[in-house]
């Protein structure tokens, strides 16, 4: 797995080892369960209630481009189907894809924080990605036009109408 560290603005990934760890006993605190395992409520959980283990806090993360290509920011949740195991697609390094990668990391961290609101490191990372995405969004809009109908762009006229739309040919170039 490739961790992101080339860009000084890039948030750092935690130092947790990337090798899959053996699932530990359910009573272990969530932080020590490793990448591919999580905690259950003690060794004797109440009957008649379904349990999904809580993901460990500060989990190992992919870099943002690999996260977009994988469909998750978290190696522990990367569980592909056999018919889909092939080389990960190399996404073109365009302004659009870079913005998609930032927005995806934000969405994924935001969702993680819903159930892990106390994870301060993830929260810091979340805000630093938002800052990067705001800068990326401004750059993108200057080159390609508005993403929101209300975006201010340097071109004259009502640029919102400009083709291509996201579903059109060339809409994802």
């Amino acid at each position: 797995m490739q961790m992101e560290n080339s860009n000084p603005n890039t948030p750092v990934t935690p130092s947790t080892p990337s090798t899959p760890s053996v699932p530990t006993t359910p009573s272990t605190p969530s932080a020590s369960c490793g990448t591919n395992a999580g905690s259950l409520p003690g060794c004797c959980a109440p009957l008649a209630f379904p349990y999904v283990p809580m993901q460990s806090t500060n989990p190992v993360r992919f870099g943002r481009m690999e996260a977009l290509q994988t469909g998750t920011l978290f190696p522990g949740l990367d569980l592909p189907f056999k018919a889909a195991i092939q080389a990960k697609t190399k996404l073109a390094n365009t302004a659009l894809v870079e913005l998609m990668a930032l927005d995806f990391a934000i969405d994924e961290l935001g969702l993680y924080l819903v159930t892990h609101a106390q994870d301060q490191e993830a929260l810091q990372l979340y805000w630093s990605y938002i800052k990067l995405a705001n800068e990326g969004r401004e750059k993108y809009q200057k080159m390609y036009g508005p993403l929101l109908q209300t975006d201010l762009t340097p071109e004259d006229g009502y640029i919102w109408l400009k083709d291509p739309w996201p579903w059109d040919e060339g809409g994802n170039d």
Binding site: F49, P50, Y51, V52, P53, M54, Q55, L68, T70, G71, T72, F74, L77, D78, L79, P80, F81, A84, E108, L111, Y112, V114, T115, H116
Partner: peptide, 18 residues
């Protein structure tokens, strides 16, 4: 493949929500 991976992540989060 991207869309499929999202289903796995959402399953995890719904479980944590419960």
């Amino acid at each position: 493949k991207f869309l499929r991976a999202r289903e796995v992540v959402h399953f995890q989060r719904f479980g944590e929500g419960l």
